[in-house]
């Protein structure tokens, strides 16, 4: 998928994560800040990159503000932000396909 415009998903509440995606041209630029950076920073990074890879996102600036989200929450927020950036978040989502 191609990130067409800036989009945000998620909140700054505890157990959530706020993910912002913006258009960019030279690969993925990922910035993470987390309340549990020391323990889970690597895991968060791996989950975000894996999710972007599944969505076939090649380019984009991705900012994650993590508040102790579970992996499944993190995935949901990244996916929603990417689908919103393409204006495709409302229907015909590939559940079980690119989303899994």
């Amino acid at each position: 998928m191609i990130i067409e415009k800036s989009a945000v998903a998620g909140t700054l509440e505890s157990s959530d994560a706020q993910v912002t995606v913006e258009p960019a041209e030279n690969g993925i630029e990922l910035e993470i800040s987390s309340s549990v950076m020391n323990q889970y920073g690597r895991q968060i990074k791996a989950t975000v990159l894996e999710t972007l890879d599944r969505l076939d996102v090649k380019n984009g600036r991705v900012t994650v503000v993590d508040k102790g989200a579970l992996d499944c929450t993190l995935k949901a927020r990244v996916e929603c932000a990417v689908f919103r950036s393409c204006g495709q978040s409302d229907k015909n989502i590939p559940w079980g396909g690119a989303i899994k």
């Binding site: 499944c72 949901a76 996916e79 919103r84």
Partner: peptide, 15 residues
């Protein structure tokens, strides 16, 4: 509503 569905899907599948 869109964000809630993504959350729901993973909550159904992983928990």
């Amino acid at each position: 509503k869109d964000a809630a569905r993504f959350s729901l899907y993973h909550a159904l599948k992983t928990i």
